[in-house]
């Protein structure tokens, strides 16, 4: 299309020489304008990437079927091991007896209260950890002195198993809910803060420069540019922070269990151990696992996927 016009009259064009912005004669401008928009539309159409979402059926087959098959296989192996009596049944009860332990909890009407006691603590502790970890991460990322002072400690704390804090928390705060929350915070805050620091460190300086030329400085730069740009790292930190909250809480509930604190999953597990009831022990472990997976599936995975997909950062959207 463009070639028809190519080099029409270069020499003639050179002859005329106004210095102002006056566009070329109307007729020519009209032809070129139409030509240009058509050319542009063609280029746009050729180069645009269309993102297709998989249909629901294929999604089910790809995403749901494999884990279901894996779980069924584990159950079958478990049942086979039980039937062959590889270990005494007080060490390895049958899947059926674990299921009936679950049924007992249901019949007593305490199944959901046991789970909710722990989940409520875990979520509340996590929310507080986010409220503390976010400003802390922002400070460490943006203030050099703060980073030099506590950056390495924060990273080090991440590798310290939070169960190590339980004895200290119990001595400081007694066997109370406060001790549980203290352990959750010590476990989760470093992850969340570090996630934000990593996210901020990976923000391309170009975005900040672009923001500055548009007049975003200081707080406005942080709010409109820095934080949204750091969101992928931050959500990864949140996800890990939740995992650490949940782990820390279970450790705390196991060690610092007391009837006053209400029956959570950790206490339920500890009680089962005291009673040498392996079915309940396995049930407790499976419930702790299930809650961890469920919260991740319901909250964090969709959040992370949304953040990455909206930026075209997932492999599938390319």
């Amino acid at each position: 299309m463009a070639s028809t016009e190519t080099g029409t009259d270069g020499a003639e064009a050179a002859a005329a020489a106004p210095l102002d912005k006056t566009p070329a004669p109307a007729a020519e401008a009209g032809v070129r304008g139409g030509d240009l928009s058509g050319l542009e539309a063609g280029l746009d159409a050729l180069e645009t990437v269309t993102v297709e979402r998989s249909p629901l059926g294929r999604l089910l087959v790809q995403k749901v079927l494999p884990p279901v098959v894996a779980i069924v296989l584990v159950l079958v192996a478990w049942q086979v091991a039980y039937t062959l009596k590889l270990t005494p049944s007080y060490k390895l009860p049958s899947p059926r007896s674990v299921a009936s332990a679950l049924g007992d909890l249901w019949d007593q009407g305490i199944l959901f209260s046991v789970i909710w006691t722990s989940v409520e603590r875990g979520l509340l502790g996590f929310v507080v950890a986010v409220l503390i970890g976010t400003p802390l991460g922002l400070l460490v990322a943006r203030v050099k002195v703060v980073r030099a002072a506590i950056g390495p400690i924060l990273t080090g704390l991440q590798s310290l198993p939070s169960v190590a804090w339980v004895p200290a928390a119990v001595i400081w705060l007694g066997i109370t809910s406060s001790a549980m929350y203290a352990v959750i915070l010590l476990g989760a805050v470093p992850s969340i803060a570090n996630g934000l620091v990593a996210g901020i460190d990976q923000v391309p300086p170009l975005y900040l420069r672009a923001g500055r030329t548009m007049g975003a400085r200081g707080v406005r730069s942080a709010w409109f540019v820095l934080l949204p740009a750091a969101l992928p790292g931050y959500t990864a930190g949140l996800k890990q922070g939740w995992a650490f909250s949940w782990r820390s809480l279970m450790a705390a509930e196991l060690i610092a269990s007391s009837p006053d604190l209400g029956l959570g999953l950790g206490q339920f597990l500890e009680n089962a151990r005291t009673n040498s009831d392996m079915s309940q022990v396995l049930l407790a472990i499976l419930m702790i696992l299930a809650v961890g997976i469920a919260i991740d599936l319901i909250v964090f995975s969709p959040l992370e996927r949304w953040v990455l997909r909206s930026r075209g950062l997932t492999a599938r959207s390319q």
Binding site: E5, G7, A11, A13, A17, P18
Partner: peptide
């Protein structure tokens, strides 16, 4: 002073 719109292939531009 070559008048706009020019083309990158124009002889005057090339010269």
């Amino acid at each position: 002073d070559i008048p706009q719109p020019r083309r990158i292939e124009d002889a005057a531009v090339a010269d």
